[in-house]
Amino acid sequence: MYKVISSLLEDVKGMDVLSAISVSFFFILFIIIMINVIRMRKEHAEEMKNMPLEKHDLNDKF
């Protein structure tokens, strides 16, 4: 298996376009996450934001 992959890869040309392909890949992922975040319900976001805070924090005397 390794030999097959390695022989295939040895002929790969145009490694210089790798960065362009990789950045494009990132932006696709980024857009998917963005859409999901924009569509997220406000109450979910509020619930998650408040997770570290507890009722007794309001009376925290330290």
Binding site: V37, I38, E46, P52
Partner: peptide, 15 residues
């Protein structure tokens, strides 16, 4: 905890 305020944006934290 120190500010006793929720984080500014949960949505921003995901991205």
């Amino acid at each position: 905890k120190a500010a006793n305020r929720p984080i500014y944006s949960y949505k921003l934290s995901i991205i």
